[in-house]
Computed example of a mutant assay.
Amino acid sequence: MSELFLLSEAQMARISPFFPLSHGVPRVEDRRVISGIVFVIRNGLRWRDVPAGYGAHKTIYNRFIRWSQMGVFGRIFVELAKGGGEADEIMIDATHLKAHRTAASLLKKGLFPRFIGRTKGGLNSKLHAVCDSEGRPRTLFLTAGQVSDFVGARALLSTLPSGKALLADKGYDADWFRDALADRDMEVCIPSKSNRKTQIPYDRTLYRKRHRIENMFGKLKDWRRIHTRYDRCAHTFMSAIAIAAIVIFWV
């Protein structure tokens, strides 16, 4: 057991207050099960291949599915991100996540969308995100791969953290978006599209900091079950993303 990855006591202390209460029979040790979930997501394993030291793989899988359906991991991410404070700059962008055939090959069933679409790169999902000046994700939003960046921008606009300036690439150059940011008294650092009749100036020195959100996406994609989507259900995939964001950036 000493050779296995385990979340530290300090990390567990940050996230355990948001765990649901146990009813009836006491559940298996939280630290061991959550560490097993993290191990599987980070290394891209099948659930049945989780090391025996973490316990029965069915227990780990069932905990992940049940708590994903309850929205536990998403709530933990939201609550920890709220404590990030005000940032000097915030950044918005989106990235594609390839859908594996196990996630995309079956017909869609159930009431909820799977958020898998087709682009020139094949079947994938798109993760829209806002991060702060330290490169930590603050809000996350999942759509099908072919969805416009503006759809993600509209969805994230109401939950934008406070900041002095917003940085984005020219894909977010739209008058309505600039006006919405101006209403929040935020400096807009977005290059103009080439087809804009009157080019809008922006701070090129400040814009260089936008690489931080690209670095954030890179760190998330280091986790194999994030880089390649194996989960058929959008809520389980989003839970995997939230877990990765929590462990990498917030604990």
Rank of each mutant, 00 (worst) to 15 (best):
R32N: 03
S68P: 15
L21K: 14
N215P: 12
D185A: 14
H96V: 10
N124A: 09
A174K: 11
D88E: 14
I41L: 06
R184T: 07
G71R: 00
S22F: 14
I200K: 13
T228S: 06
K98H: 12
T205K: 14
G44W: 05
Q11V: 01
Q69S: 14
V251A: 15
S125Y: 03
F217R: 02
G53S: 04
M70I: 12
W223H: 07
F5W: 00
L220R: 01
R48N: 09
S133G: 15
D203T: 02
G74A: 09
R118K: 12
P17A: 09
I65R: 15
D203P: 00
F19R: 09
P137H: 03
Y230V: 01
R48T: 10
A13W: 05
K197P: 04
F73Y: 14
T205L: 14
S35Y: 00
D30M: 06
A104E: 06
S105G: 15
A155I: 03
G171L: 00
D132N: 08
G44Q: 09
R204A: 11
L123E: 13
S239C: 02
S194F: 05
K109R: 13
S35A: 06
K126Q: 10
D231N: 00
T236V: 11
K193V: 03
G145H: 01
I37G: 06
I241R: 04
S194Q: 12
E89Y: 13
F112D: 15
D179H: 05
E9T: 09
F115H: 11
Q199L: 09
S162T: 10
I200R: 14
R114D: 13
A180D: 08
H23D: 14
A99R: 01
E29K: 03
I190A: 02
G163F: 03
R204G: 05
I34N: 00
G55E: 02
G152N: 05
M70T: 13
I37Q: 07
A104W: 00
A174V: 11
I41G: 05
R138H: 03
C131Y: 05
G218D: 02
S105P: 10
A99Q: 00
A245F: 00
A104Y: 01
I248A: 04
Q69L: 15
D173R: 08
T198Q: 10
I41D: 01
K82Q: 13
L157G: 08
T236Y: 08
L181S: 06
L7P: 04
T59A: 06
K98W: 09
D173S: 10
A242T: 04
K164T: 02
F5S: 04
S125A: 08
R46F: 14
R66C: 15
M186F: 00
E29P: 02
R32W: 07
W47I: 12
V72R: 05
M12Y: 07
Y230F: 11
L166N: 10
F5R: 02
R66E: 14
A99Y: 05
R178Q: 08
A144S: 11
L123D: 14
G110E: 03
A13K: 07
F237V: 01
L166P: 12
S8G: 09
I190C: 02
L157I: 12
S125D: 06
F39I: 08
T159M: 10
K219F: 13
R114A: 14
K108L: 11
V251E: 13
K164R: 14
H235W: 13
L157T: 12
R204T: 13
L206T: 13
I200C: 09
K170Y: 10
D132S: 02
R46T: 14
G55L: 04
R138L: 06
N43T: 06
A56C: 09
K98P: 10
D132Y: 01
S162M: 11
